[in-house]
């Protein structure tokens, strides 16, 4: 019973960790009537305590490192990290910049990450990323 519920009720907390705002707009686009992620029970929430998925957009800048760690720790288990955009994977257009603390797996090594490439990724791609995340959460709940 529990894993089924996870499949259709995923709450996402969105963090801008140094993004150019392109991916943030695409995340908002996924909520609009055209894509409407609420039909899958996916909701954007305003507090990491309510979240199952933390969506990071952008590369992690030096200033954001401790905030990113704290947000990850504040989220109740089970949780996954969704990295939206190319920046979170390789640094993207900010590659080799002086203020980057690097991709997210270097900052939170224990996190289970899902990557959505693209600059910015299309809303369909973001939805697919969230679906990958919920498949994983289901697996966790089964164990």
């Amino acid at each position: 019973m529990i894993p089924k519920a996870f499949k259709r009720a995923l709450w996402v907390f969105h963090v801008n960790s140094g993004s150019c705002n392109g991916c943030d707009i695409e995340i908002i686009a996924a909520l609009t009537p055209r894509y409407d992620v609420e039909r899958f029970g996916i909701r954007l929430v305003g507090s990491p305590r309510h979240a199952d998925v933390i969506a990071f957009t952008g590369p992690i800048t030096n200033d954001m490192v401790d905030k990113v760690k704290r947000i990850y720790e504040q989220t109740p288990d089970p949780k996954v990290v969704l990295v939206v955009g190319s920046c979170g994977i390789s640094g993207g257009v900010f590659h080799e910049s002086y203020h980057l603390a690097g991709p997210i797996e270097r900052i939170i090594p224990e996190a289970k990450c899902f990557y959505v490439p693209g600059c910015p990724p299309r809303p369909e791609a973001i939805i697919q990323g969230v679906i990958k995340a919920w498949e994983y959460l289901e697996e966790v709940e089964k164990k």
């Binding site: 529990i2 519920a5 089970p78």
Partner: peptide, 19 residues
């Protein structure tokens, strides 16, 4: 919008209980 299914609040509650 299409909107969530009518049983969505039940799913939300079950999910929150398992967190």
């Amino acid at each position: 919008r299409v909107g969530p299914p009518i049983r969505q609040p039940f799913l939300d509650v079950i999910k929150l209980m398992s967190k």
